[in-house]
Computed example of a mutant assay.
Amino acid sequence: MTNVLLTFPIKERFRNALKDQFPKVNFDFSDTIEGADEKEVEILVTYGSDLTEKVLDGLTELKWVMVASAGVDQMPLAGLGERGILVTNVSGIHKTPMAESILAHILSLNRALPIIQEQQKQKIWEKMKSNELKGSTALILGPGSIGGEVGRLLQAFGVNTIGCSRSGNRHDGMHEDILFNEIENTLPRADYVISVLPSTSETRWLLDESHFEKMKKTAVFMNFGRGDLVRERVVVHALQNEQIAHAVLDVFEQEPLPSDSPLWELSNCTVSPHVSALSAKYVERALEIFKENLEMWLSGDEGYKNVIETDRGY
Rank of each mutant, 00 (worst) to 15 (best):
V25E: 10
S130P: 03
E309R: 15
A112D: 14
D37C: 05
L113W: 08
T161S: 10
W205I: 04
K24T: 15
V72P: 00
L287C: 01
G313V: 06
G58V: 05
S299I: 00
T7E: 00
L139T: 08
S130W: 13
E284L: 00
S195T: 00
Q243F: 06
G71W: 03
P273F: 09
N241P: 08
P9F: 05
V25I: 09
E242A: 14
E40W: 01
S30F: 02
K305Y: 13
S299V: 07
I146T: 09
W205D: 02
I244M: 00
A286I: 03
Q74A: 09
A99P: 05
I116N: 01
S267P: 08
D250I: 05
I116F: 13
N131E: 14
V150Y: 04
F29I: 11
T32A: 07
V87F: 00
E295G: 05
A104P: 04
T46V: 05
K123A: 13
L239S: 00
E232K: 06
I308K: 01
F180S: 02
S91G: 14
L59D: 07
Q122V: 04
Y47G: 10
L263P: 02
I116S: 00
L153M: 14
E265S: 15
G227R: 01
K217N: 15
R83F: 04
M174R: 13
D73N: 11
P76W: 02
I183E: 09
V220D: 03
N306Y: 04
S49D: 05
E255D: 13
Q117Y: 03
Q117F: 07
E100P: 12
Y304I: 11
T270E: 12
P198E: 06
F29L: 07
L59Y: 07
N306D: 03
A238L: 06
T137L: 11
Q243N: 01
W264M: 12
L154Q: 06
K134H: 14
L80Q: 01
P262Y: 14
K39I: 04
M222V: 11
G135K: 13
V87E: 01
M128H: 11
D20E: 15
P143D: 07
R111L: 14
P198G: 10
V90S: 03
L86W: 01
N110P: 05
D301C: 02
D73Y: 02
E100I: 03
Y47N: 10
S91K: 13
D301K: 15
S130C: 11
K214S: 10
E61M: 11
P262I: 12
K11S: 15
L109W: 10
S272P: 04
L86R: 01
S167W: 11
S136M: 02
E232F: 04
T218V: 12
V150E: 08
F290A: 02
E38I: 01
S259T: 14
I194G: 03
G58Q: 10
L103T: 03
W64K: 05
M174K: 08
H94T: 00
E82Y: 07
W64I: 09
R166A: 13
L107G: 08
L206A: 10
V230D: 01
R13A: 13
A190T: 08
E34Y: 06
F22K: 10
F221C: 04
A68P: 05
A36M: 04
L109P: 07
M1F: 14
I178C: 02
L207P: 10
I93P: 00
